[in-house]
Computed example of a mutant assay.
Amino acid sequence: MKKLEIIAHRGASAVCPENTMAAFEHCLELGATGIETDVQMTSDGRLVLIHDETLTRTASAEGWVKDKTYEELRELDAGSWFHTAFAAERIPSLEQLFGLIRGKNILLNLELKNGIVSYKGMEEKIVEVIRDWDLEQQVILSSFNHASLVRCKRLAPEIQTALLYMEKLYRPYDYAVKLEASALHPYKFAVTREEVAASIAQGVATHPFTVNDPEEMKAMIEMGVQGIITDVPDVLAALTAAHTR
């Protein structure tokens, strides 16, 4: 059986401010084999890692990510909202995270946050940067915007895609095959043992989110999922280590 992917949701977001370099670096220390993060675009076309479309919650600032330049965003404090010890943390660029994971055996799940804001040219830009860094085999692109993922697949057939969804879908594995997606990223309550098995038969992986409770983790492992997206990679790492003894 292939080793379960331990995918840190926004980095080690339970103990560090989400989507910061501190969170990404620390999750690797906690046993993560993958990192999930959210990608948006600045007004001057840079790709940055932040979940919300607005800056209020995690950067203590007014306005929208799309309306700020990269330099304007870099001046903001992206850590103090979590704890004053992280006051030096900034909103990272995608390239900063690439610098951390390149050369390491780490899966990188980039979620395109283009459901509310339609970032023109985002797919082309993200494919270009992935190719510039030679990370085509290390990255999986996910989104709730499935049309965007189809566009990514047409631009770069060699880069994996994953379909994010909240509610149960009918035969999601067939839908994934139709869209040439490599994986399904369902909300944890939309996963069934039968669908995981059917997905495996179609060559489609299942990576549910966001699973933090150890009992829920065990249930997902028993269902046969290939990876779990979690805020607590250390808890999942310990559990998988015990499970394989």
Rank of each mutant, 00 (worst) to 15 (best):
E18P: 07
G224S: 00
F24V: 07
N114M: 09
M217G: 08
Q137S: 14
S43C: 11
H51W: 12
H51T: 03
P214C: 09
S60A: 13
G11N: 08
L55G: 04
C152T: 08
V48E: 04
D132C: 08
F82W: 14
K178G: 02
V48S: 06
N109S: 10
N145V: 02
L179R: 08
E180V: 01
M122C: 08
A78V: 09
D77R: 12
G11V: 02
K113A: 08
E158L: 06
E62W: 01
D132Q: 13
A32H: 01
I91W: 06
C16L: 08
N114H: 12
L55W: 09
A198D: 07
T42D: 06
I229Q: 00
A23D: 07
V232D: 06
N19R: 11
M122N: 04
N212H: 05
I7A: 00
H83Q: 09
R102V: 10
E71K: 15
E18N: 03
S199T: 00
T54G: 00
D213C: 12
A61T: 01
A237R: 03
D132M: 13
H146M: 00
D38T: 04
E36G: 11
H207E: 02
D77Q: 10
N114P: 07
N19C: 10
A237H: 03
E72P: 13
V225C: 05
M220H: 15
A241P: 01
I221Y: 04
V204A: 05
M166R: 14
A147F: 13
T54K: 15
I35F: 02
T69P: 05
A176W: 04
V232H: 07
L149W: 03
M21S: 11
K125S: 15
T58D: 04
A201K: 15
I221P: 03
L169H: 10
D38P: 00
K120S: 14
A190E: 05
K218V: 12
L236P: 14
K178F: 06
L169V: 04
I159R: 08
L30C: 01
R46G: 00
W81G: 07
I91T: 05
D234E: 14
L179P: 02
V48L: 08
E89N: 13
A78S: 06
L163D: 05
N105D: 15
A238Y: 12
Q40K: 11
Q226G: 04
A238L: 13
M166V: 02
E180L: 12
C27A: 11
L30T: 00
Q160T: 02
G227F: 11
G103R: 03
G79V: 08
K104L: 13
P172N: 11
Q40H: 12
L28Q: 13
S199W: 11
G103Y: 08
L110F: 10
Y70C: 12
Y175T: 15
G99H: 05
A219E: 13
E180F: 08
L94A: 10
P186V: 04
V191Y: 10
F24Y: 14
R154F: 01
